[in-house]
Simulated scan of single mutants.
Amino acid sequence: MMSETSSGQVRRGRPRSEKARQEILDAAAELLLERGLEAVSMDAVAERAGVSKATIYRWWRTKETLALDALYQEWAAMRPGVRDTGSLRGDLLSLLRPWVRIVSARPYGRIIAALISEAHTDPAFAEQYRAHFVEPRREWARVIIRRAIGRGEIAASTRIEVAVDLLYGSFYHRLLHGHAPLTETFVREVVDMLISGLGGPPVEGPAEAESVEGPARSNR
């Protein structure tokens, strides 16, 4: 998490209210989804959460770091980790399907776009964004690919970082540009194409795909 308490810059003073902190995060998430980052201010969050701005600043110095924590919390329910299904395809589908269900159901694309824009202009925030938001998801994918190498499904020479870029790049391309829907069908297509490019086993067909986590459903 990105708040001051997690960054190691803990200020002395009276114990902070976890209830107030949670209310702030909930309020920030609601406002972000309703209005987007540009239209959200610390004043608006304070009013929605029923706290003072001083209370917010105890944990977050900027609305961008608050937004990052709020988004982190919104997605916290989706922590598939690196479930071992026995195959590279099954592992990747298990990782990506829950995430796609969440991000395609609400207007997260504009929030992420705003955070990326801020990361390009603020090096300190960029470091926080990558460390707390980007890197954990990349590491999940790395573990899955390394596991597939260990099983002998793909070559030991596989360039893992490139494979991770190819995997997530396709989803963020649709999420950020909105030129096509981000669906579970698309997840399967990307996973199958990636595995084919990595020299993995051929796809066994739709029935195998559905067995990973039940029937795929479109969120659009």
Rank of each mutant, 00 (worst) to 15 (best):
A44H: 00
E38N: 10
L32Y: 01
R58K: 11
E30G: 11
I56Y: 00
T65C: 12
K53R: 15
W59A: 07
D69T: 14
I56M: 04
K63W: 00
E47C: 04
V40L: 06
S52W: 01
T65N: 13
A67V: 11
S52R: 11
R35Q: 14
Y72H: 14
S41K: 03
E30P: 01
A39C: 04
D69G: 14
W60R: 06
G36T: 05
R58T: 11
T62E: 02
W60K: 06
Y57I: 06
A44K: 07
T55M: 06
E30V: 09
A46L: 08
D43P: 04
A54V: 10
A29W: 00
R35C: 10
L31R: 10
L68V: 14
W60P: 05
V40I: 09
E64I: 07
E34W: 02
L37A: 12
T62P: 01
T62F: 04
A39F: 01
E34M: 10
L66H: 04
Y57C: 06
A67R: 05
M42F: 00
A29E: 13
R48N: 05
A67H: 06
T55Y: 00
K63H: 02
L66C: 08
Y57L: 07
A39N: 13
K63M: 05
L32C: 08
A46W: 01
E64Y: 05
E47N: 13
A46R: 03
L32R: 15
G50H: 06
E30S: 14
A29S: 12
K53H: 08
Y57P: 05
D69N: 14
L71N: 09
K53Q: 14
G36R: 15
V51N: 07
V45W: 00
W60C: 10
R48T: 09
A49Y: 03
M42N: 08
S41T: 15
R35M: 06
L66G: 06
T62S: 11
S41W: 00
R58V: 12
L71W: 01
E34Y: 01
G36M: 10
M42L: 13
E64S: 11
